[in-house]
Structure formats: C-alpha cells, structure tokens
Design a protein around this nucleic acid. Structure first.
Length: 397
RNA sequence: GCAGGGGUGGUCGAGUGGUUAAUGGCACCGGGCUGUAAACCCGGCGGGUUCACACCCUACGUAGGUUCGAAUCCUACCCCCUGCA
C-alpha cells in the first residue's frame, strides 16, 4: 500500500517549537494541538456542537479503549457502526489503549507478559486486556489514531521498575503493531474512509497507530525506549508516563531531552499533559500534541483557568463579583456570565456550573493553542512564552 | 387546666454523672485535581492569645441546687409539640 494513514508537515518553527499540519482521515489538524478528553464517548459536560463551533473548534478528541470496552462494549459499538457513528462525532478521534488504566487502576489489576488482568471498576468482573485485545477494541471503535498498548509506570519508578515496564511496553508495542496491521488487512476498522477522501492528501483512509515511549524519569531508559519504538515504526510517537507523580522539573527535563530526539518527520504527542504552562513549555521543547483532563475535570470541580491564573469559583471572594471568569476571554461564557453567578450555580449544585466552567476552560486551552500556533508561525513564540509563563499556573490576583 | 414528650454549637441531630469544646449529617470556609474508578477527594469549622507546643474564656432554654465532678440528677420558672378537657 502506498501513502500514509496520517500526513505530517512542519510549516514553521522557533527553536524546538514547531507549527505543523496533521492530516488525518477525518480532517486536517493544525498543531500544536490540544485534544479534549472524552473518555466515555463524551467530553463531559460538552455537546459536540459546541466543540465543533468556531468558538472552540476542537479538531480532535480522545476516547478510551478500557472504558468503552467495558461499556457499552465492542458488540454494541460494532452494531452501531463504530464510535464516530455511535456518538455522533464527525471529526478526528484518538483512542487511548487502556495503558493508562494499567497505571490508574493499580489496585484492580495484575500485570503479566501476556497482558493485564483487570477487575472491572464497574461491576468487579474479571477482564483481560492485552495488546491484541486493545487493538481489536480500537478497530471496533474505528478511531483515527490508535495508541499502542503500554504500561505506564509511576513517575518516581526506580530504574529497575521503570526498565521492566519499558521493556514490557516495547514488547507490547511490537505485538500492538502486528495485530493492528492484521486488523487493517482484514477490514476490522469501523472508521475506514475512502483513500484520499480529504482531497489529495495521499492518505490511505486507514487508522494510524502511535507508539509510546516509557522509561519514567530515567534518561537512558527513555532513549532506549525511543529507539526500540522507532525501530518498530509508527505513524507518530508519544511520550507516556509523565505527569504521573514526578516533580515538574523532572517532566520538563525528560521532555527536553527526549522530544528533540524523536523523529522530526512524525508528530510528537505528550500524553496526559497538562496545565496551560505545561503546554507552552512542552511546545517549546518540541511537542506537537497534547491531551489532558484538567480543563474538563477542573471545570466540574470548580476551578477555572484564566489568562491571569487559576480561579477557584468556590471562593467566597467572588460572591458579588460581577466580572467574567477571565476579563481577557472572548468565550460565550465570559461574554455573558459573572463570577457571582457561576459561584452561585456551583454552590447550589447546579449542573450548569460544571457545563459553563468546562466550556470556558476548553475555550481557554484551545485558544491558548491557537495563540501558540500563531506565535510560532509569526516567529514570536519566544516572546509569547515569556509573557505567558508565570501568569497562568498560580492563583488569580 | 391535666397527662405525656421535648428544648444541645449556623442548622438538623447524637449524647442521659467523669478523656465532653461535645459523635454524625448538612451548611459554611479553604485546598487538591495532569493519556478521567473523579459533578470528586482532603482539611477546617465556639471565642481569644500563640510561629508552635500550650493556655485562657464562654457554651447544651433560664435561674438556683446536689456532687470531687453535670448537657446528663433535683427544684422553680419560660417556651414548643401531642392527647384529654
């Protein structure tokens, strides 16, 4: 087969920072890009209409293999024509492999060479997830970017622990690749589109597969993991196992050491990161793609991200504050609603509080990435970064 | 009027002589959240002094009393609820 499942082109760069075009079978994505997390076939609190509208214009969102595998299950998803049709999301979709749940559901799983025995967090039943099963579920989901099945070790993992997880991840990567290719051959992918459906991008219309680099905080392990992953060959490469408990300086150091060594002709994805400052700092170190639950989860727990820092809507100081969450924000929530009102909604337990703050947070994250892209394209990224950092990760005022 | 029940910290409500400034829930105040077991979790919550350890006040309707010691027992009074007149 000729062509790629994914197109990638760098259109501008400033230092390690790069602005690019990621061509998927479901649309072109300008990078650096932030991908809202939609674990259970929903970006919690958001309608797809809102995500697609110009105000947010999210080009790609995440789904999760583990959660959708448990519910509604592969049979339902296949019967409904894949995740896009099932959920009604028409744009690009990246699915995590369930690898993160190997980490986050620590108490409920047992890792072996063959795969991971989970006890379902839903009903306690025994489940077994492996690279092969993960690829099969992701084929049924029909996501546009599939993630290899990996083991995410804790951020403070020792050399030995990290090595074991990294080597297992490498072996699983090879198995993921093999099963993925086989599934593509037999047409198991429910999201398949006509080749070149995007109008001349030279795409195959197949799913793309990303490999994941592990190794915790250990530079030698990270380098080895990268080499072994690249050797297998993927459409893009991700850094996993960061922002999982390690010091922030460690995360930045690992990204700084690793990203520039990742293939420059493929997109680089930093999984699970991060705060607005993390995004900008990681772009500066060569990352193209991000996802994180912070804007959506914190939107539900009362924390807003603004151009002047984090704002906890629960604080009594906003009780009669008639300003918007962020005076520099042009989103529909900030144009209409006051802090006082949002606080009232939150304190009374109204679901609209979560919806509105989530909307604003996503608007802020996505707008930040728009500004980052623009700054790289205009060559002003260095200055943008200096002005941005230090303003957004601390509390407001 | 008689009989019975009851008045506890912002609130609801435990506690019926001794680690009781007083269990719990709620409310309130604050913090956390990074490939989502999360519309969740953690902490504080009478007042004062102290960085802190600690100490001092004031509190269980009101006023007395018994006792080494009382929210808990006794007396009187005030108020609320239920039933009978």
């Amino acid at each position: 087969m000729s062509g790629h499942a994914l197109g990638w082109e760098v259109v501008a760069s400033v230092g390690e920072a790069r602005a690019g075009l990621l061509r998927t079978r479901r649309g072109v994505i300008e990078t650096p890009v932030f991908m809202p997390v939609g674990t259970q076939a929903t970006v919690k609190g958001m309608r797809f209409d809102e995500l697609e509208a110009d105000e947010l214009d999210a080009r790609i969102i995440l789904g999760n293999t583990y959660h959708l595998w448990l519910r509604p299950g592969v049979e339902v998803l296949r019967a409904c024509g894949g995740l896009h049709r099932f959920a009604g999301w028409r744009r690009a979709l990246l699915t995590d492999s369930g690898g993160f749940q190997v980490f986050s559901l620590g108490a409920l799983r047992k890792i072996a060479e063959e795969g991971v025995a989970f006890r379902s967090h839903v009903d306690g039943s025994a489940r077994f997830l492996s690279p092969e099963v993960s690829m099969e579920v992701q084929a049924a989901l029909g996501s546009d970017i599939v993630m290899a099945f990996d083991e995410c070790a804790p951020g403070e993992a020792t050399q030995d622990e990290a090595r074991r997880a990294m080597e297992l991840t490498a072996r699983w990567a090879r198995r993921s690749r093999a099963r993925f290719d086989e599934l593509q051959r037999v047409g198991a992918d429910t999201g398949r589109v006509e080749a070149d459906a995007d109008g001349g991008g030279g795409l195959t219309g197949e799913q793309a597969l990303f490999g994941i680099v592990q190794g915790a905080s250990h530079t030698d392990l990270r380098r080895e993991s990268l080499a072994r992953t690249v050797e297998i060959g993927f459409d893009g490469y991700a850094i996993g196992g960061l922002s999982v408990g390690e010091e922030k300086s460690v995360m930045y150091r690992v990204v700084e050491e690793l990203a520039p060594e990742m293939p420059s002709d493929r997109p680089r994805y930093l999984m699970g990161v991060g705060t607005p400052a993390d995004l900008v700092e990681s772009v500066a170190r060569g990352i193209d793609m991000f996802d994180c639950v912070l804007p959506t989860r914190n939107g539900r727990t009362g924390q807003a991200y603004t151009s002047r820092g984090r704002l906890n809507i629960k604080n009594a100081r906003w009780t009669t504050d008639t300003r918007p969450l962020d005076e520099s924000c042009d989103c529909s929530v900030c144009r209409r609603h006051t802090r006082a009102y949002l606080r009232h909604l939150y304190m009374t337990g109204e679901m609209l509080a979560a919806i509105l703050i989530t909307h604003h947070n996503l608007a802020f994250f996505l707008d930040t990435m728009r500004r980052v892209r623009q700054a790289i394209r205009s060559g002003e990224f260095t200055r943008f970064r200096q002005e941005f950092i230090g303003r957004t990760d601390s509390g407001v005022e």
